[in-house]
Every structure is written in C-alpha cells, then in structure tokens.
C-alpha cells in the first residue's frame, strides 16, 4: 500500500474535495508540478488548467479544470484554493466556442473598464479550457 497524504480542494462556496491522495498534479503558474507524500512546504499560484488527483497510483486520475487559484503544500498535505472547478467532460466544445465568441464580442463592445475587466476575466479561463478540450483530455 502506497503512502498517501491529505488533499483538500476548497472553493469559496464549499469544500469540494477532501480525500487521501497518492499523487496530485497541479497546474502551477510556472509549470505543472506533482505533489507526492512528504513534499517540501511550498506555495504557488495556479493558472487555469487541469488538476489530476490520483487516489491510487494505478488508477485513472480524477481530472478537474480549475479557473485559477492558489496551492499550498505543508506538512499536513496539499490545500488548493480554487474559485471554481469544472468537470471538463461536461463541457461541449460548440457551446464553449459560442461563449468565447460572446465574450470576445463583449470585449470589443466594452464601454468602460468594468465591462472590459469582466470580459477579460471570462476569456482568461475559457481559452485554456477550450485548448484542453480540443486537444482531448
């Protein structure tokens, strides 16, 4: 039996995941990093991307898309603060493309800084999600 560590995925609304994991791959801003038991204390911001949770090294991972956030590794385990997570398998490419087009239109039609900021925030996570889905998970 392989060693495990505690992994928590927390969104502002609730605790999304609280499991014992053997291995977690996190999409850090400066590249993906894998966390195994006994990882050194570490903090990193996240870019929009996939997080892979291996509850067991030999099983297929649970994969979720994060819109960005923050990860902290300490002696107790790994904590990921994420604003929102999406199961990439539930997203249709066509619908997403439409959403991206809408957001791009919003961006060009933006009348003030607030509308620009809103559209940019939406695009910031939609585009990477689209790339990932187009590439195949």
């Amino acid at each position: 039996m392989a060693e495990r560590f505690s992994f928590e995925l927390v969104s502002p609304e609730r605790l999304l995941m609280d499991v014992e994991a053997a291995h977690v791959v996190v999409p850090g801003t400066e590249g993906e990093f894998g966390v195994l038991p006994g990882h050194a204390p570490f903090m990193s911001t996240l870019r929009p991307g996939l997080i892979q949770v291996f509850e067991d090294e030999n099983q297929a991972p649970k994969t979720l898309f994060l819109k960005g956030g923050f990860a902290e590794v300490n002696a107790d385990g790994l904590v990921v603060l994420a604003e929102d997570s999406i199961d990439p398998e539930t997203v249709g490419l066509a619908a997403l493309d439409q959403d991206i087009r809408n957001a791009e239109e919003d961006l060009t039609a933006a009348r003030d800084a607030l509308e620009t900021a809103r559209a940019e925030a939406t695009l910031a996570w939609m585009r990477p999600l689209r790339d990932i889905i187009a590439r195949g998970i």
Partner: peptide, 30 residues
C-alpha cells in the same frame, strides 16, 4: 500559519500576494 516551516514560493512572495489580494477582496465581500 506556516507551522514553523519555511516555504518555497513560486513565482515569488510578491507575485503570489498580488494574485491573492484581489481574490481577498472578493472573499471579504462574499
């Protein structure tokens, strides 16, 4: 907060803080 441990930061402390501050405002409002 760090449990006495020394953290490694990526990219660095300041960049992390810059990323967290806007989030913090949202969290406080929420």
């Amino acid at each position: 907060a760090g449990g006495g441990a020394i953290y490694e930061y990526e990219p660095d402390e300041e960049a992390i803080l810059d990323d967290l501050l806007p989030r913090n405002v949202s969290v406080q409002v929420y």
